[in-house]
Amino acid sequence: MVKFEIHDLNIWFGSAHAIKQVNMEVQSNEILSVIGPSNSGKTTFLRALNRLNELNVNYKITGAVELEREDVRGIEIEELRRKVGMVFALPLPLPLSIFDNVAYGIRIHGEKGKEKIEEKVEETLKQAYLWEEVKDRLSESAFKLSGGQQQRLCIARTLAVGPEVILFDEPCSGLDPISTAKVEDAMVKLKEKFTIVLVTNNVKQAARVGDKTAFFLSGELVELNKTDRIFTAPKDKRTDGYIRGKFG
């Protein structure tokens, strides 16, 4: 099933043309990895999916991003962001306790029942493979967790509002290999229920977890294909050059 359809997408920040004429689809229940050198527009592309680019004042967009055939600009922004969750590059816990970090999103979407919130927090912490490590210290500050734990907490927090899509923006850039492996495990497990778009600077990570891989360069989508095709037989020689580490 097609989750996102992107038609003729162009994005500018002031005079900088960040995304150039991108057309693509994102299928549900798979991991789409987005790779490319820095400043290639990966993150801008990602933030177009949940309209987070709009926080930038000089932002301009043409073309359309459709979530299940509905233009994202026609969806109420709070509802869109509930459906399309995001995990940021750095672990960014809110200045709250571990429990409240996960409960925050549930509460702002109107859930008041204490037991329901507790249930949901436990469920999502389990989904993010964090429950066993934090179940006895839920009232502690989230900042006391290690970086890897914080990032899994952020995943749980994103899951708790009931998204359909999860956007990962280089989620492992600040993590050690073991924490990275845990986050990757979580992602692979999560694609059964969610659609995942993963922006990563780590080409190997794209190869490990991505079902499909998209290669961006200078704001253009150079190539999008099944991950094993991209990595074994890329059609474009720029893709080939990037994954072999010739530039970037």
Partner: peptide
């Protein structure tokens, strides 16, 4: 970043 996180979870600006 705190604001960005909160907004990304679907919170309104006022929330």
């Amino acid at each position: 970043s705190f604001r960005e996180v909160s907004l990304s979870l679907g919170a309104s600006k006022w929330q």
